[in-house]
Simulated scan of single mutants.
Amino acid sequence: MNILIGEKIGEGGCSEVFEWENSSKIIKLARANTDINAMKREYHHNLIAWDNGLSVPQPFEILEIDGRPGIVFERIYGDTLMKRFVQNALKRASTEAEVTEDDNYDDVRITAQILSEIHSKSNLSVPSQKETIKKSISWVDHLTSVEKAEIFALLDSLPSKQQLCHGDPNLGNIMIRDGKAIMIDWMNATIGNPEADLAEYIIMIRFAILPSYLPDNAVEYVNTIRESIIKIFIDEYTRLSGITYDEVDSWIAPIAARKLSADGIGEEEKNLLVDEIRRRLSH
């Protein structure tokens, strides 16, 4: 079966992505830190999203290659919003090109729109959001047991909804193909509150450490538009759903605490999140 695997075309903290069979499919193979149950969960969630008519890659099957579990998906040809965002920042840093605000903000609105579509689905067979968040926080070693207990109490006090949530709406998980957004990587999907997905996005925009290869003036440019991005994102989502920033704000601390369990962020970013969590808990 190895002859079916082609060139590596992508990777993340939990997997590597290769061409599969032909140009219309890819296979996502788990790294050592990701087991078969996690891959089965991602396949199941992605299939539910596909069956409900959401804009996602079609999942085909789960396989095992040389002891590594993998999922065969439809191949999506297009750019991630992360790639587009970095390209715009680099254009801004160039003396030869100009980038307008709309180059970034159109993509921000697209993100709000696809999340609104996802959140329109409800009562599906995916895990409980609050229980999943608590489990992730329980593994975190950046917070004390008292701080975790405070966050659990806060989480319990928040309203509970039954809407489909993606769980990891970062810019690398949204692709643009022919002007249409497609959401990938459904491993962390849950049933719960859209506010959690919105908080995840806000935290990423507000606290993410930018790639070290970006020139200083590109970093400075991104830092000046972080809060504008958040405002436009929330304004668009509010227009579509009625949910406001104030309703999302209460979710910032628990979602930041959950994010501390992620493999894909470094200690500098985690320290920023810990400071934000403690600031909020002290109020």
Rank of each mutant, 00 (worst) to 15 (best):
I255H: 08
D185N: 01
A262L: 13
D107W: 00
D216K: 10
S160R: 10
G179V: 02
K161F: 11
W186A: 13
K28T: 07
D197G: 02
S138T: 03
K134L: 12
S261I: 05
L154C: 08
R68H: 14
T95D: 14
L210E: 10
S136Q: 13
K180E: 13
A149V: 07
T132E: 11
I205S: 03
N223P: 02
S250L: 14
I203E: 02
R41S: 12
E117R: 15
Y221G: 00
G12K: 06
H166Q: 12
P215Q: 02
H142E: 15
T34L: 06
I252L: 15
S120E: 08
K135Y: 11
Y237K: 02
S212L: 10
E101P: 04
S241K: 15
N170A: 03
T111H: 04
D106V: 09
F233D: 01
S261Q: 07
Y201A: 14
M175I: 15
D197P: 08
I232V: 14
Q87P: 00
F233P: 01
E220Y: 09
N2Q: 08
I205Q: 11
G70P: 02
H45F: 11
G167Y: 09
T132F: 14
L214N: 07
I118D: 10
D235T: 02
W20N: 06
D168C: 05
L124T: 06
A49I: 03
A93R: 06
